[in-house]
Nucleic acid binder design. Sequence first.
DNA 1: CGTGCTCTTGACAGTAGTCAAGATGAGTGG
DNA 2: CCACTCATCTTGACTACTGTCAAGAGCACG
Lengths: 239, 239
Amino acid sequence: VIDRFLMKLRARHDVSVEEEQVLRACVSEVRDVPDNKTIIHANEELTTCTLLLEGMLARYKDLRDGQRQVTELHVPGDFADLHSFTLKRLDHSIGTLTSSKIALVPHERLRAVTEMYPHLTRLLWFSTNLDASIHREWELSLGRRSALSRTAQLFCELYHRLDIVGLTEGQSYDLPLTQTDLSECLGLTAVHVNRTLREMREAGLVEFRGRRVVIADLKGLKAVAEFEGRYLYLERVPL
Amino acid sequence: VIDRFLMKLRARHDVSVEEEQVLRACVSEVRDVPDNKTIIHANEELTTCTLLLEGMLARYKDLRDGQRQVTELHVPGDFADLHSFTLKRLDHSIGTLTSSKIALVPHERLRAVTEMYPHLTRLLWFSTNLDASIHREWELSLGRRSALSRTAQLFCELYHRLDIVGLTEGQSYDLPLTQTDLSECLGLTAVHVNRTLREMREAGLVEFRGRRVVIADLKGLKAVAEFEGRYLYLERVPL
DNA sequence: CGTGCTCTTGACAGTAGTCAAGATGAGTGG
DNA sequence: CCACTCATCTTGACTACTGTCAAGAGCACG
């Protein structure tokens, strides 16, 4: 069931057959979750981690007036809250953007991994550090990039992240988000996202319609975003 | 030499005497670094981690036009680039904001820790996950908070982070940053930071002059920031 | 007592937000 | 099969927060 996760792992690291079996044995349960549902509430005590098998999840934080900031999107193969293993409760919530399929991994099994499999532990540690790298890129976007550049950056990031788990077709991919969802990722209003998408379409860069992203000019898109993919650590990292 | 780091560790976790000795033995060298110097360049291969003993460091990313976004500030006791142990090279640079004293910890010694001390490994893993939590709070600030609220948030965060390593006096602390440095943390221009600081001063919330923060109304400051300190994980977390 | 850096302020500009109304489109029930 | 509904998308007009540019003040340091 966790093939996409293993696919991502193998793309970056050397994973032994034994380690793969250990990881498979970590899953205690597979579950379907509907659309638009909060599956992890901020500050609740957690005893399992969540591996996304199908669908899309968002980590988000809310302000009192209802404003929401998504801090990271999760695609199939992602451990959405592996960091809960050490943090025990999260500073943010996690919700589904579409109906999704998730695998649950009890903390106690991860603890056993850390006791017995140091190399595998380092791989998991790497994975949470990669999430942090994505957070930093988003900080750069939110703090310094224009609406146009920021939106382009997100489309580029998702293109690569979906690509390594085999979820792109040519230069297009399904992205089951509304413009409001996008605005919560980008720190913009939905109205402005709409205007920005129009601008990108008219510039011949990318089209986003019917929950699908079609990149017309990847090179141009990356240039607008000043996209520099190294923060995704797509090359091999020996651990 | 790493007392502030141990102080932070003990505040959150149970650390055995043996573990503390192991950590002390991880330090290979202590070094002084001048003001305003990049000590880690983005994308360079790293073989050591950097523990900040005295001074202040910033993690930052630059855009081509010279705009800079600081993604996290580091105070004494912080492992500034523990994540380089698994990432091997960083997606960002790290520089000194003041002259600083740092301790170097070779990756190979950390690797040995992961092979032999699983509990200690989890503590270090926790520490990188805490950095990620700070990144997320900054994403919220950069994406959704106003200039005023964002600035208040930063002063609150630093107040607590400096407090647990004993670097506050009452409700004030040294903050050796220029307004330009602040603007690079806050995703604002230096001019606007100046106006925002004036507004906070006139509102009787906080004063920042001569590289020192004096909080006049902590409760009010937290209210403006909607500061909710749980993301700093200041309570105990058993691992 | 210059020389720079930082801070401060004012006038003006521009990107993104707000408000509002209409269009589009998928799903539902009569 | 055709309204009907509700969410989403789109656009226009106006607002406002933050950025830009520029000039002068304050201050540490040599």
